[in-house]
Design a protein around this nucleic acid. Structure first.
Lengths: 335, 335
DNA sequence: TTGAAAGCGCTAACAA
DNA sequence: TTGTTAGCGCTTTCAA
């Protein structure tokens, strides 16, 4: 048997040492009612001497709450979720709550049981599950509440949801490209099952208006560097003068691939990303993109969750409009 | 009051419904001893009907273990830790353990209480705490055990520790640069308090051998994109023909900055990074770097922790030697 | 094989 | 103000 930390004192031992009841110790430790100062002092002294701290697990059972929340994401390697994670961790931590993280590793089929299991160890859940079918999600809601959804709406369910307004972001990017004279635009599509990909694609289709505003060339791609890199050739041969990438990583991969092919950006082709992940302004050339406030998303998620934990009702849906950042990767169309 | 999920069934209700004792339900749920098949079936039916699942919190209290571990990191925005997080999350998850994550947000002074608090909710801790003074860490060990250290050694303590062999990585990078003819090398230093920075710097000083092998120019920098970007001018003016950056992000920032200044890489200056974070091979030019097996680190951390949880002793220290990846950002010195 | 009972460590009515 | 008591939901000896 391995040494499992020093044997921890219990409330009973402290009570004995201080010559009081466990209830009194509990009251002192929680700053409750008014315990006689001299008693309180005795209790604290005993607690210090025994190096006592209340057991979170026992408290959780007695109180019915754990001071812990769960974040459920499909994929931790996605910078988008990393920032949400970070914002959430900081905000919840500042309010004395721990963060449990559960990653489905893109296995949608495990996501339900993962979420339910996680919820049972926690007081609430922040769920980012872009691929889970709506029907399944709806069925899940009662077991996950208090719940906050990220990048996903469930109208009429009363579940707070924080989303990026993808359509608005795409709108800004396209307007920018159109103003530069581009009329043949390739979309490097993200994962087909991803709702954010669908949102972005829908927006593009709408804006293209059946080719009347501009010609839209769809290129199946993915969500990672490599995917963008690998379609560079296809892009170059497509006749597109501008590329709207699913996200910054893809854009960066494409940038890299085009560079290797000797295609100049933005000289011959313009490229836009989406998200504004940290290095987007450091690429060569720096990436024009739509910045989504990812930290804000995490922080707001905590606010929404805390409201529910406190029994408050809360506003239900928030859309965060990305901010267009024009940088060096887009330029006037070469005629 | 908000709806807190559907009211969950307890073991008592299931026992009543099945007409058995709680002990029997417990045995069935845990696949223990041999409960008579027909009884077991009755219990399972009741459990299904009531949608029962054992409470993890109650189990934790009764069993004295939580099936949860904690990862403690100074800064989640550091890609290095993100990958460790990911590897750890996956490995622990595969063995049915949850992951609690605690971020000190670089506040070393909070790290101790954060770690202790986290440990009390968990069965063990993976600690990445590059800046915590050794004495403090040593005092902490008994309260955190089972414990695994990342990028940090505590000789004689018996605490398993997984580290990157920074010196070896730097050695490979420098050998590479020397072979290309470089004799004036700038080091873009990371955070002074970081042990990994110190390791890398020490290695450089040793290799430089007081300038006999090459001249070492120290440039205080940092750990992020911006820091690298901001010292580009200084680097360009330093007369260095090659740059060893603290990590890939800094290298990338420097790359970007030099590009803006019209300094060609590797034409005029060669640059190396460290870590091989995902985009390192997509920069322009792609980054020569020392690849650290970060996923492995996370995965191994779980192995080490699991060994301790199982009461097994385990090998104590592992050094992961980075792999030199020669890419486009380094070239023969321009004479 | 099954059940009764005690216990994990804490909190919170209720009484005194 | 303090203590007594019951209870949070589960596991696990110990007897039967």
């Amino acid at each position: 048997m391995v040494e499992q930390g020093r044997s921890t004192a219990t409330i009973t031992r402290v009570a004995e040492a201080a010559g009081v009841s466990r209830a009194t110790v509990s009251r002192v430790m929680n700053g409750h009612s008014t315990v006689a100062p001299e008693l309180a002092e005795r209790v604290l002294a005993a607690a210090r001497a025994l190096d006592y701290a209340p057991s979170p697990v026992a408290r959780s059972l007695a109180l019915g709450r754990t001071a812990t929340i769960a974040l459920i994401v499909p994929d931790l390697s996605n910078p988008m979720f990393q920032d949400v994670l970070r914002g959430l961790s900081l905000a919840a931590g500042a309010d004395g709550h721990r963060l449990l993280i559960a990653e489905s590793n893109e296995h949608v089929e495990d996501e339900e049981v993962l979420a339910i299991e996680a919820r049972r160890r926690c007081d609430g859940v922040v769920l980012a599950s872009p691929r889970l079918p709506t029907a399944d999600l709806e069925r899940l809601v009662p077991q996950l509440t208090p719940l906050v959804l990220i990048n996903r709406k469930l109208p009429g369910s009363g579940v707070p949801s924080l989303s990026v307004d993808h359509a608005a972001g795409i709108g800004d990017l396209v307007a920018h490209l159109l103003s530069l004279g581009h009329r043949r635009i390739a979309y490097l599509a993200g994962p087909p099952a991803s709702t954010s990909n669908r949102d972005r694609l829908d927006a593009l289709l709408r804006l293209s208006d059946h080719g009347r505003e501009f010609e839209l060339i769809q290129v199946p791609c993915g969500a990672m560097f490599d995917n963008g890199h690998d379609v560079a050739g296809e892009v170059a041969g497509s006749g597109a003068t501008a590329v709207v990438a699913y996200n910054d990583m893809v854009a960066f991969g494409a940038l890299s691939g085009l560079h290797e092919l000797g295609v100049s950006v933005p000289g011959q082709i313009s490229i836009t990303g989406f998200d504004d992940i940290p290095f987007a302004r450091f690429t060569t050339p720096p990436l024009t993109t739509a910045a989504v406030p990812k930290n804000t998303l995490g922080k707001q998620a905590w606010e929404q969750l805390r409201n529910q934990l406190d029994g408050r009702r809360t506003k239900h849906e928030a859309d965060f409009r990305p901010r267009l950042l024009v940088r060096g990767s887009t330029g006037r169309v070469s005629s």
